[in-house]
């Protein structure tokens, strides 16, 4: 009896030991690239191309960052990225919330078709629509503004879909009660629906944020001048087509781009994790 118990403990100990080791391995697998990004940006060019690579910079230097700042007008790109990202999130919310509310709570003619269209729009990759949109933007003479990076994303099909799912979870009698109290639709949305769909709203905003901030292909096509280009394109510009890639400079640039996203995530990670998971099961 006694010995059996310790045997079991031992086995448990070994399994959890293996489990722990494997978890550490997973951490390395998922975090090492970030570690790599960070340390490379503090290396000298010479050190960045030695093989085998060094895991800790021998000569810790800020030269790469200095070069990024001297080669790029970073504030311009940063400003563009921030404006585009915030505008997209705000417009998508303003457009998406009422649509999702109507699709969740009203029945009207053509609702089925509209739902189908929203779903269908979600499937369409931008790479097969961009030529027509480009010509549209060009005719409007918008290509030297930030608008082509914002306006086409005014409605997010995925966002509408997620929000609708969340609104449908709100019990009908709460809304009926509010209506009996003569609450306006706006009040119902802001006081009842949005708080109830908080985590979905957060997920949707997170996706908009990540999608806009990281977008590369669309602004590449939709911008004709440097003053309207976002950070992603600027970082790509650090890649010198004629010379060996200067890894520290590239990584320093990428770090500047990745940092805001990581900081936001670290600050909100618990909420984001539960919001993403929550919306997944609904």
């Amino acid at each position: 009896m006694y010995s059996k118990h310790t045997g079991l403990d031992l086995r448990r100990g070994v399994t959890s030991g293996i489990s722990f080791a494997f978890k550490l391995f997973m951490l390395v697998l998922f975090l090492f690239p970030f570690y790599w990004l960070i340390i490379t940006s503090f290396k000298t060019y010479g050190e960045s191309i030695v093989f085998p690579p060094t895991l800790i910079p021998r000569n810790f230097t800020l030269a790469a960052f200095e070069q990024v700042f001297s080669r790029l007008n970073l504030w311009n790109y940063l400003k563009n990225s921030i404006i585009v990202t915030l505008s997209v999130i705000i417009i998508q919310t303003l457009v998406g919330v009422p649509a999702a509310y109507a699709l969740a709570r009203y029945s009207f003619r053509g609702k089925g078709v509209m739902l189908a269209l929203v779903m269908a729009a979600f499937m369409v990759p931008t790479q097969i629509t961009f030529i027509t949109v480009y010509i549209m933007m060009s005719k409007l003479r918008w290509l030297n503004t930030l608008l082509p990076q914002i306006v086409p994303f005014g409605a997010s099909a995925y966002g509408i879909f997620l929000l609708r799912q969340a609104f449908m979870q709100v019990p009908a009698d709460i809304i009926e009660a509010a209506r009996l109290d003569n609450a306006s639709e706006l009040k119902i949305i802001t006081r009842i629906m949005l708080p109830a769909a908080r985590s979905s709203l957060m997920t949707v905003s997170l996706f908009s944020f990540v999608g806009s901030w990281n977008s590369y292909f669309w602004p590449l096509v939709m911008s004709n001048s440097e003053k309207v280009r976002p950070l992603t394109l600027a970082i790509e510009r650090l890649k010198d087509q004629d010379a060996g890639i200067n890894w520290p400079v590239i990584m320093a640039g990428n770090m500047i781009m990745v940092l805001p996203v990581l900081v936001i995530f670290l600050l909100l990670s618990n909420k984001i994790i539960s919001a993403v998971g929550y919306r997944g099961i609904k």
């Binding site: 010509i135 060009s138 096509v221």
Partner: peptide
Amino acid sequence: YFSDVQAKTLAAIAAGD
């Protein structure tokens, strides 16, 4: 790159700008 300039120029000509 040159290929990008080519593509963007042709697209811009097509779009009238």
